[in-house]
Design a protein around this nucleic acid. Sequence first.
DNA 1: GTCCGAGATTAGACAGAATCTAAGTTAGGA
DNA 2: TCCTAACTTAGATTCTGTCTAATCTCGGAC
Lengths: 148, 148
Amino acid sequence: MDTESIRQSLESNGLRFTPQRHCVMAFLMEHAGHPTAAEIFQAVNRLDPRSSRATTYNNLRDLVQAGLVREVAVEGRSARFDAKGMRHHHFICDRCGKVEDVDWYDVPKPASSSLGKRILRECELIVRGLCTGCAPAKGRRRMGVETE
Amino acid sequence: MDTESIRQSLESNGLRFTPQRHCVMAFLMEHAGHPTAAEIFQAVNRLDPRSSRATTYNNLRDLVQAGLVREVAVEGRSARFDAKGMRHHHFICDRCGKVEDVDWYDVPKPASSSLGKRILRECELIVRGLCTGCAPAKGRRRMGVETE
DNA sequence: GTCCGAGATTAGACAGAATCTAAGTTAGGA
DNA sequence: TCCTAACTTAGATTCTGTCTAATCTCGGAC
C-alpha cells in the first residue's frame, strides 16, 4: 500500500494524513511480525523523539477504525497489530509466543441464524503449535500431535 | 469435571491440589461467561478473604499449563479464562466485547508441512459480529454483512 | 493573507492488569 | 518428627493503556 492510498483511506474516514500516522503505517508495513503497541511506539519515537505515546495509541486506534490496520487476537498482555495487506490467519507458537501469518483459506462460518447473532466478518483462525525455531528437529517426535 | 479428576490432572503435572486451586476451577466451571482474571480473583477472594491476587494469577497460569483451563485469545486488556469442558469456538461481540461460546465444529487445518511448523492443537476459531443484545432488530439491516 | 475552529499532538498524571519479591505456611516423603 | 519443596501471602513494582489540559497545525471562510 503506497502513501497516496493510505492518505485516501484516512481522508475517506475523516482523518488527516499526518507524519505520525505515516510513521506507524510505514513501520507496520515493514515489520510483518505483528509488533506490539509498545514496539511501534519505540520505533516511531526513535524516528521522532518528540512523538508521544498517547499519539501512537490514538493513531493505532484510528487506523484500526479506518480499516488500515488490524488488531490481532492473541492472549498476552499487549495488543499486537498487523498492517492489513493480504487476508491471512494467524499461527501462535506455544513456546515462544511468536505470531506468524498463515495463508488465507476460507473457513466455514457457523450458521448465523442458529446463533442468534449477526456475523460481520470472515472467521479468523488461530492455529497453535511450535514454530520452526521451537519445534524439535525432524524425525525426533518428542511432543507428538496433541489434539486436546 | 469432578474434584477427583481435577486432582489427578494436577498431580500428573506435579502440582498439588489446594483449596485455592479448587476454588478457581469451581468458579470457572460454574461461570461459562469467560471471566477475567480479576473477576476470578474477586470471586475466590469473596470465599476466602485471605487469598491473594498473586496466588490466583499463579494458579491460573498453572491450570492453563496443566491443560485444565484455557486462556481465550481476545483483544482487550484483561485475560479471559475458560474451564476446558466441551470443545468450542468463540464469538466476540464487536460492540460490547462479550465473549460467547460457539458450538464446536471441525475446521480444516492448514497443511502442517507447508508451514514448516508443528500444529499441536485443534484450530481455534474467532467469530466476530454483533451479539443478540447488540444486533439491530430483525428485518432492519443497518450494518449488512461486511466481509472486510 | 488572516482568522477561526476542528482535529491532532504533547507531556505527564492516572488507572488497571499482571508480575515480582521476600517471608511465612503447608504437605508429604524420609 | 524433621526436612524440603511446593504453595501462599502482602505489598511493591512494572507494564500497558487511557485521560486531561495545553498547545499546535491544517484547511476553509472571509
